[in-house]
């Protein structure tokens, strides 16, 4: 089977700093990839390359057999993206915002309307469809963004911390949605810090740190015979196994008095 995403020797630098260092990765259709790593590991940069937001990288990225640089628009059409800490134009209503984003993907107004109503209804936002989003909670905005990422029925869905701000019921809904999307043959690129969710939903887990892939395999492969949880594997591989010691020194750092007057 041909990989749907193939990344070869991907490097990206910001000035002197190397953010991605020789990333090699293959993702197959219908797979759910859990892309994990500590803060600043290069997860979001990888995602920005894949979504075409960053274009000045070195190496090769192919999606569905096409080179990303040469077929940027075709590839963007295949991808649905829900960014981390995403902002949206919250002076608009969900209906207006989704019409705007859908139109950018070249969708017909009727189709946008039909899908949007269904999606927002499923997210429990049907009553808020014509309200301005500036009064929405973080979770409500996140639901609109999820709808925006899925609206054009992409074959690859890239989710960067999609559960951020969602309530418990919405989290269950999204997890179920991921399974349904997978069943439909969609490829899901899932970036998260929530190890328990990644562990449950991912077929393959890719662990990245300091711009380099440290591990790539199924959860069982990563665990081997150790019986450890994904969280423990993560700590071990990112060399943060002295966390207990660090927590101790963190707590002891606060033993002195706080204010200038108290000193």
């Amino acid at each position: 089977m041909q990989p749907i995403i193939s990344i070869t020797n991907l490097c990206k630098q910001y000035g002197e700093k190397t953010v991605l260092n020789n990333i090699n990765l293959e993702v197959y259709p219908g797979q759910v990839i859990g892309y994990i790593g500590p803060n600043g590991a290069g997860k979001s940069t990888t995602v920005k390359v894949l979504t075409g937001v960053i274009q000045d990288y070195t190496g090769q990225v192919q999606v569905a057999g096409k080179d990303l640089r040469e077929n940027l628009m075709d590839i963007k059409r295949m991808i649905g993206y829900v960014p981390e800490l995403a902002e949206l134009y919250d002076l608009l209503t969900p209906r207006e915002y989704l019409h705007f984003t859908g139109t950018l993907y070249g969708m017909e107004a009727n189709l946008i309307e039909e899908r949007m109503v269904k999606m927002l209804d499923s997210f429990g936002l049907s009553d808020n469809i014509d309200q301005r989003m500036d009064s929405f909670s973080k979770g409500m905005r996140q639901k609109v963004l999820l709808a925006s990422g899925l609206l054009h029925n992409p074959s690859i869905v890239i989710l960067d911390e999609p559960l951020s701000g969602l309530d418990a019921n919405a989290v269950i809904l999204v997890k179920e949605l991921l399974q349904r999307l997978k069943q439909e043959g969609k490829t899901i690129f899932y970036c998260s810090h929530m190890m328990d969710v990644v562990e449950k939903v991912s077929d393959t887990i890719v662990l990245i740190d300091k711009g380099t892939i440290l591990a790539n395999g199924t959860f069982d492969q990563l665990r081997g015979d150790s019986g450890q949880s994904l969280e423990q594997i993560f700590s071990k591989l990112t060399m943060a196994d002295n966390l207990i010691e660090r927590a101790g020194s963190l707590a002891s750092a606060m033993t002195n008095n706080n204010t200038l007057e108290q000193l």
Binding site: M73, Y89, G106
Partner: peptide, 19 residues
């Protein structure tokens, strides 16, 4: 809300000039 402009960059727009 200039950060909300990420949507242009991730959507398949051939030319930003149209928008």
């Amino acid at each position: 809300q200039y950060k909300a402009s990420w949507i242009y960059y991730s959507s398949p727009m051939e030319k930003p000039g149209y928008v």
